[in-house]
Design a protein around this nucleic acid. Sequence first.
DNA 1: GCCTATATTGAACAATTGGTCAATATCGTC
DNA 2: GACGATATTGACCAATTGTTCAATATAGGC
Lengths: 199, 199
Amino acid sequence: MPGKRESEDVRREQILRGAFEVASRGGIGSLTIRAVAAEARLSHALVLFHFERKERLVHALLDWLIATTSVLHVSDDVARFPHAQDRLHALLQQEMARLSREPRHTRLFFEFWALGARHESIRVRISAELERYRAAFKAIMDELLRAEPGAFAGVTPDGLAAVAVSWIHGCAVQAMIDPGHFDTDEYLAAVRGMVGQLA
Amino acid sequence: MPGKRESEDVRREQILRGAFEVASRGGIGSLTIRAVAAEARLSHALVLFHFERKERLVHALLDWLIATTSVLHVSDDVARFPHAQDRLHALLQQEMARLSREPRHTRLFFEFWALGARHESIRVRISAELERYRAAFKAIMDELLRAEPGAFAGVTPDGLAAVAVSWIHGCAVQAMIDPGHFDTDEYLAAVRGMVGQLA
DNA sequence: GCCTATATTGAACAATTGGTCAATATCGTC
DNA sequence: GACGATATTGACCAATTGTTCAATATAGGC
């Protein structure tokens, strides 16, 4: 009764897409081997054949999620601004646009984030992503402070980078719970006001 | 074989404390009727007797969590600062201190937050809390902008309030995933630098 | 001290779960 | 076209889950 055969890579991708669909629809809590198999139109035994244990499927899904999410990247459009504060603002705008463009990725990512509080292996993966995020902002903050040296005693690039990450993520969680009450443009205007005053 | 009797209020509180302990230890996903009963040293049937359905226990736990969490309150220590920006900074410091003082409450709250993305009843509860939070900051931002009218074109109190909430929550989620890499003092110094420039 | 109301319990149920395994159809190789 | 390797499957298992229910011990009123 076995159906058509397929290569390992194709099957894994097919299963992971099913897993994303299931987890995205009902949360990680609803992610079961059988639900994933049904979504991918496969037998649940085949899912276990390719991923061995559920835990590994979950971990593979996190990797897949990070890989398929458009990672933070300082695009040419952003990089060509001559002033550091303009680049910062453009980067913030770009990231906020991305979060609202991929709401399912964003929500699922935060679910993994919460899961990471209790699972070491997930925590290190998320933590690494967060670190990359901070590093990207720190680079811009470095320039921002170098342009106006000595003006902000005690304000470090690391501190500013952490603030920038807060903007993105705090903004994401607020928009996640009630998109209606959260005005992106108003928010960005306020941030621009602050950044503008900085330099 | 029934054990000692107890009043409804006492039992519910006992069960909810057990539920918090279980959910806080292993996440909402590990919250089962039997685990809660074991934690509270009761039979699992008694838990259902008092809460009828698991769904209601979960919802009651969220209410309990919000009620027992020291809610945002502009204390006298904060209120007596004459300048709005000093009050804002003191309030931010107070809230960040609270988040790290009650890490288990904070983590569980964010788990409910994620759950709210898919459960209407939970979402409205969380959303209401978030709204109260924003309103408290908006009051301060109002004063802040009134002190310096016309200086920030397009910057609204609502926008600034949303930014303040981002600071708190973005800070919380960063500290949640890797407390080691997150320096609270450095963060606050950066925020102070921005707020100081604002007015 | 009895009696009633009910808080409390263990047993039992069906459903769902992750995981194993032998049977089998499919595919590339000869 | 036969063959061997293996991807694929349904059946099966034990554990856990939420929920129901009859039995029972307890506490308060008489």
